[in-house]
């Protein structure tokens, strides 16, 4: 009745799942018309479960993504009916709907003003604050979005979602050290999130390739490699982790063979941390491990073996391409 994909958090839906869901929307909406029993009986059976409202929210977002505005507005009406207009989450969903169906810049501006009105009365309305920041981003005012986000984080410094959004904004701007700071804040809140470790590793890698001093570059690379190791330690078959590990170890082996002098001791650098760079032997072994594991994942996934099919197609293709880069260089 309610398929498992409907209950997944909406951000995780792949485009194909999204289309599928939105196609089923009219049927779903028809079958779930609410009949509320009169008061005495409604105490015993309310005819609703907790999951159905999550399903409505996911359905709403899927329909907006595929452009099915009619079904989306029906979902929204039902949510408003059940939870009231004043509910914060419902307000945010309504705002989202208005943004998605806005025809032009002026309409978007009106929605923005609507948000600011609401925030004047209720400054703690977090969903609306976040919607406002998202709207500013889509209206291409990144500096305003950044200021608003910093303000939100001053009030609520334990909001991991907001910190990672800020990290993305800084990254788009190219301020690597600030993006690293933000991602570290996310780790303070969720220390075992291996995807955040991988993301931090990726940002470190980018910043090390962009930096001009070779000492810093080396430090950044080794830090990045270690972060990838940590993400694999937390999640044994993490494709993204192995990909990054292979990339960084190859790069490190390259750099270390070119740089004759080895920077030996640990120093304390606010951006790149202070551990001594890893030994050549361990880098080589990690490279072999990463290559072997990537090859195994690609092989088993393309063979369609059970238990190995959870990987995303695009990631597996990228892994294969990385592996092929190696073989190409050998053939040369």
């Amino acid at each position: 009745m309610i398929s498992p994909t409907l209950l997944q958090p909406p951000a995780h839906l792949s485009p194909s799942a999204c289309i599928q869901i939105s196609q089923q929307a009219p049927a779903f909406l028809q079958s779930h018309t609410r009949t509320v029993l009169p008061y005495p009986l409604s105490v015993f059976s309310s005819g609703e479960t907790q999951e159905i409202w999550q399903a409505y929210e996911t359905l709403l977002l899927a329909c907006l993504r595929t452009g099915d505005d009619k079904s989306a507005s029906q979902c929204l009406e039902r949510l408003v009916e059940r939870f009231g207009e004043k509910n914060e989450r419902v307000q945010a969903l309504r705002g989202l709907y208005d943004e998605a169906t806005a025809q032009d810049e002026a309409a978007l501006q009106k929605v923005l003003e609507g948000y600011e009105e609401t925030l004047k009365e209720q400054p703690t309305n977090m969903p609306i604050r976040k919607r406002r920041i998202a709207l500013l981003q889509s209206m291409e005012r990144p500096t305003d979005a950044m200021t608003a986000l910093v303000g939100l984080l001053d009030t609520s410094p334990t909001d991991a979602e907001a910190w990672s959004e800020l990290a993305d904004l800084y990254l788009a701007q190219g301020s690597y050290s600030q993006a690293i700071y933000c991602l570290e804040e996310v780790l303070l809140v969720t220390p075992n999130a291996w995807n955040v470790h991988a993301r931090l590793a990726e940002v470190l890698y980018l910043s090390s390739t962009a930096s001009d001093s070779p000492g810093n570059a080396l430090k950044g690379l080794s830090e990045s490699m270690r972060r990838f190791c940590r993400s694999i330690e937390l999640c044994n078959d993490y494709l993204r982790g192995y990909y990054g590990l292979k990339l960084t170890t190859t790069h490190l082996l390259d750099t270390l063979s070119k740089v004759p002098s080895k920077p030996a001791t640990a120093t304390s650098d606010p951006v790149f941390g202070e551990l001594a760079p890893p030994s050549l032997a361990s880098i080589q072994r990690l490279n072999e491990l990463a290559t072997a594991k990537l090859a195994e994942i690609v092989r088993r996934n393309t063979a369609g073996e059970k238990g190995w099919d959870g990987y995303e197609m695009a990631e597996v293709i990228a892994a294969r391409e990385l592996l092929d880069r190696d073989t190409l260089s050998i053939q040369r």
């Binding site: 703690t124 009030t155 609520s156 410094p157 700071y181 570290e184 780790l187 303070l188 809140v189 606010p270």
Partner: peptide, 27 residues
Amino acid sequence: LLKMREQRHLMRARNMIINHAQISKAA
């Protein structure tokens, strides 16, 4: 708003103590 801010900054400090291992000493 201000009460929430106060409480969450306190929570952040506590997170820092519990999860200090995730970030480098300098950070």
